[in-house]
Simulated assay, not measured.
Amino acid sequence: MIRLALMLIFLAGGLAAQETPEAEPPMDYERLGKIIFALDPEAQPRGPGFQLTVSDVPVLVITDINADRMRAMVPIRSAEDLTPEDMHRMMQANFDSALDARYAIANGMLWAAFIHPLSPLEKDQLISGLAQTVNIAKTYGSLYSGGAQQFGGGDSGNLQRELIEDLLKKGEEI
């Protein structure tokens, strides 16, 4: 009886594995570029990365093949005059509403950033991360939101979610 149960579990697991869609190929510079150019045909290669525009916002994507990392960044403003209240609010957002994007400070600038290991990055993760990065840059000083999930019944969540859905549609053909 135990043998039969184990065989059924094994067979069920095998069937589930057969129904699983194929894994995406590892992300690399070339594949990243194809996705970026699908999102913005006017994108430009920049050293180990790309410069593109998403929803009228310039985005810089940098790769480090040796570290197997990527970073998408949007400059927001000088970090020089940030108040303790600004910092507190950004840290709150990093915990709950910025989602996969983050507020960060480097070289005297406040940035919106999405940082991820490069090779396991999937197409939809990249697209969503780019949209969230743009959203937190756009909502700095107000909602501080990545836009994918929000509580409340206002219009902002739907407006921000539209950017992610638009980019996902552009990426469907890839």
Rank of each mutant, 00 (worst) to 15 (best):
K34Y: 04
D100M: 07
P21Q: 11
S119V: 01
Q150L: 15
F10K: 05
A93I: 09
P41I: 01
M7C: 07
D96T: 14
D86E: 06
K169M: 08
A17F: 10
R3G: 01
A43E: 08
S142D: 14
L126M: 09
S142P: 00
E85W: 08
D86C: 03
L4N: 11
I36S: 02
P117F: 08
K138P: 00
I115N: 12
P58R: 11
A131D: 08
M90I: 05
A113H: 00
I164V: 11
L168M: 12
P25M: 02
M1Q: 13
M91W: 07
D100F: 04
G154R: 09
M90C: 03
I105G: 08
A23F: 06
I2F: 14
I127Q: 05
N107A: 12
K34L: 10
V57E: 14
Q51E: 15
E85Y: 04
A72S: 12
M90F: 04
M7Y: 08
T133V: 04
M91Y: 07
R71Y: 01
L6V: 05
M87A: 12
A16Q: 09
H116K: 09
Y144W: 12
L130N: 01
R46N: 10
P84Y: 00
Y140R: 00
A72W: 01
Q51C: 01
Q149Y: 13
D81T: 12
A38R: 14
P84I: 00
P41V: 03
A23K: 13
R46F: 09
P25F: 03
G13A: 14
L110G: 08
L6H: 11
R3D: 10
S128I: 12
D28T: 07
R89L: 15
A101L: 05
I174S: 03
M73H: 01
L52G: 09
T133D: 11
S55V: 00
